[in-house]
Design a protein around this nucleic acid. Structure first.
Lengths: 201, 201
DNA sequence: GGCGGCAGACTAACCAGTCGGTATGTCGGG
DNA sequence: CCCGACATACCGACTGGTTAGTCTGCCGCC
């Protein structure tokens, strides 16, 4: 007979490392990184510290894993969209909407990302910032392309435009509720629309 | 001869409570609330724990004071702008730019606000959220007024528009550098302009 | 001679990470 | 076909260090 090893709803047949990561993600998002003890994580995952330190080098590593997963996902999605051969305004619209949808679909990760990034160890922090910058630059290139070819207004520097949009993405984890009136896609369409409207010449 | 009671640059003739608050604000912004110990705060302020707990009930109180100060300031500035009798698009532009300028001028407070709000005790957290919502609603009323009178597009719900703009304000503490190329006023003008352009019918 | 303003030692509760130990599995040789 | 050697996966008590908050008492001013 299967043993209920955990008080939470995590399925106990998923491999231990994934289970630890999933539980840690949830707890970090709920209580914050610093206020979540390693003991709480292992209890919620139905294992002990020995198991956690068998698979992860440190608590910090756990946090870093969350970031790596999310960065990988978003970068590859942006690359796919930006590499298409649609007109630049359609590529920007798709990219702007896509980052909103994936952020909402991983709201816990996003929350952790923006609230706990500075609690990573200095080297890991630098690494995450660097990958984040690559993402930012790819996005900015789309805006600049549109400005060069005259389909977007040049009234605002491209950097500022990108920060403007990412600000709203960042903010999603603060106000978006899964049980609210708008679906992720609707929110994404609206936010992408606001961006494109602001860029009209 | 005056005693250098502190290793930091805090003037030692300002009253102890204000000095503690100033030091705590700086440290919270630098290291985060959880990673700043009460011991560090009192040492940087050149006093001891006895002094801190004489003026403040808890570490949490210190954090709450930072919020109260900032919320008071922004609410009264918004009220002043919104109550003027200029056309609604001018009032919204002024409000949108003003919140950017005051946020940049108090970047430490803003950083703490968005990163550490959820570390307040539940009651204080609720109180801060309630005041924040009042601010949000006053701002939204401006957007709705413009939409009703036909000077703003109704393509996007007013709530979303406000969240879009506040997202970028929120984000400022992540990317804005005092030694960067843009003055606070220039950033504010650009961001307000993006908002107004997005709202063109 | 009392009182606000503060000092600083103290406590009780944690917490991240370690380490010796155990159970289960795998593989090569005799 | 079995046995020992080694590896992987995990357990849980323990350690050294840190923390918020308390408390007793001193000191100078009214």
């Amino acid at each position: 007979m299967p043993v209920r090893s955990s008080t939470t709803g995590e399925p106990e047949d998923t491999p231990v490392p994934q289970r630890l990561l999933a539980v840690a993600t949830r707890l970090f998002a709920e209580r914050g990184y610093d206020r979540t003890s390693v003991q709480e994580i292992v209890e919620a995952a139905g294992v002990t510290k020995g198991a956690l330190y068998h698979y992860f080098g440190s608590k910090d590593d756990l946090l870093h894993e969350v970031y790596a997963r999310m960065l990988r996902l978003q970068q590859q999605r942006l690359d796919a969209v930006a590499d298409s051969d649609a007109p630049v305004e359609e590529r920007l619209r798709a990219a702007a909407a896509d980052v909103v949808v994936t952020t909402i679909e991983n709201l816990d990760d996003a929350m952790i990302f923006f609230r706990s990034m500075h609690q990573l160890s200095p080297e890991k922090y630098k690494q995450v910032r660097a990958e984040r910058r690559r993402y930012h630059e790819r996005f900015r290139a789309l805006v600049e392309e549109g400005q060069r070819t005259g389909v977007f207004s040049t009234a605002t520097p491209a950097d500022l435009v990108v920060d403007y949009h990412f600000g709203s993405v960042h903010h999603l984890s603060t106000w978006y509720r899964t049980d609210g009136p708008l679906t992720p896609q609707q929110v994404a369409d609206h936010l992408a629309d606001l961006l494109l409207r602001a860029l009209r010449p």
